[in-house]
Design a protein around this nucleic acid. Structure first.
Lengths: 203, 203
DNA sequence: AACGCTACTTACCGCTCGGTAAGTCCTTTG
DNA sequence: CAAAGGACTTACCGAGCGGTAAGTAGCGTT
């Protein structure tokens, strides 16, 4: 049963870190969600940094699983990529939480650095790059160019998962819902356009 | 001279908030940068929230200025938009700091909410929307669809300004520099592609 | 010369932070 | 049935947090 508690704690930690960021969440905040004390968390994980590290590690594994699933589902690399990004931006609450957390990590890891960082994402980015290289016309592009394109797509995808509260604040509930409805199709078009545009050779 | 001190403080605050986030920066941190005490900051701004609010307000003004400049520079709305996003992603340290801060605000404002938020950006988004509506083929698109597209572009642009440290961690200094070199041209292509794809009517 | 104002200071306050120490309770194992 | 160990608690700690109170020092006005 301790296993379950641990997993529940990790899940809560992920949600809270995604919502408020590493510095915006205290160990006690996470523990309160379970009716336990912060020392219970420290017992299981040792330190706040380690909790955060485990959350990131789990996310990295999920992304790799997603990658595997997408590769199993299609042969065409462009379809694989489109499917992958579509899944990452599904709008399901799991995905939104994960996207938020990854964006925060992107912003913060410079300062918390090596401890636990985007390094976990390295294999995922490597797989992404290989997938893109399999697209006709991309095979001879430099890694740097491919990553530049991929990062722009990831940026577009990520903003989707993160903007909802802001847009609701600016445009009201009905307006935000209309935008949310329009997003997925529009996103797919943007991704298709970005992938269709072949990488530009360095000048 | 008090004016100068105040401005310096705001500048430092902006940089630190961008680097470490609202919760990752204390008033004392900001004050230390000037050799003053935190009470000096509280004297000038009243509270931490108000410092942050002033930073956001200044950014909103800058974006509006940028918008005006771009409109004065070109007649074609698509060129205006491309120019605008290009300037926002110039890679100059000012722009990187501003982009980081806006991304953080996007992630955090749900919780700090009305106090001081993306509401400052409302006029900017409104202008952006109008600019997009002037593009041939976009005039009859719903606001929601236009904003969906714009947000994706903003996402792609923003990731550019924020990813450098992470990419350096993953690909090393030389690799990251190659990516940085490839980014601008690639970004322009992505923006052009996203703008070229006409908004999709709601199904 | 007294006044008021701005710019700042030192001295606090109550609170929360991450983390340590030392236990209690309960279950598993020999 | 005792020993061991995991799960969790209460009781702390020093440090840092945002913010208040009460000044002081230097200026321009009257």
């Amino acid at each position: 049963m301790s296993r379950t508690t641990r997993e529940q704690m990790l899940e809560t930690a992920r949600m809270l870190f995604a919502e408020r960021g590493f510095y915006g969440v205290s160990i006690a905040n996470i523990a309160d969600e379970h009716g336990l004390t912060k020392q219970a968390l420290l017992h299981h994980f040792g330190s706040k940094e380690k909790i955060y590290g485990e959350v990131l590690k789990a996310i990295a594994e999920e992304l790799n699983d997603l990658m595997t699933a997408v590769q199993a589902g299609h042969d065409d690399p462009q379809t694989q990529l489109t499917d992958l990004f579509g899944r990452m931006a599904s709008g399901r609450s799991d995905d939104v939480i994960r996207t938020r957390l990854l964006m925060r990590e992107l912003l913060d890891n410079k300062h918390r650095a090596q401890t636990a960082g985007a390094w976990y994402l390295k294999p995922f980015l490597k797989s992404l790059t290989n997938m893109a290289k399999a697209i006709p016309g991309w095979s001879h592009a430099a890694d740097a160019q491919i990553i530049a394109v991929l990062y722009q797509i990831i940026g577009a995808v990520s903003y989707y998962g993160v903007s909802a509260p802001t847009l609701r604040g600016i445009y009201g509930k009905a307006g935000a819902q209309a935008i949310e409805r329009a997003f997925p199709a529009q996103l797919e078009a943007t991704i298709a356009a970005a992938l269709a545009a072949r990488p530009i050779a360095e000048g």
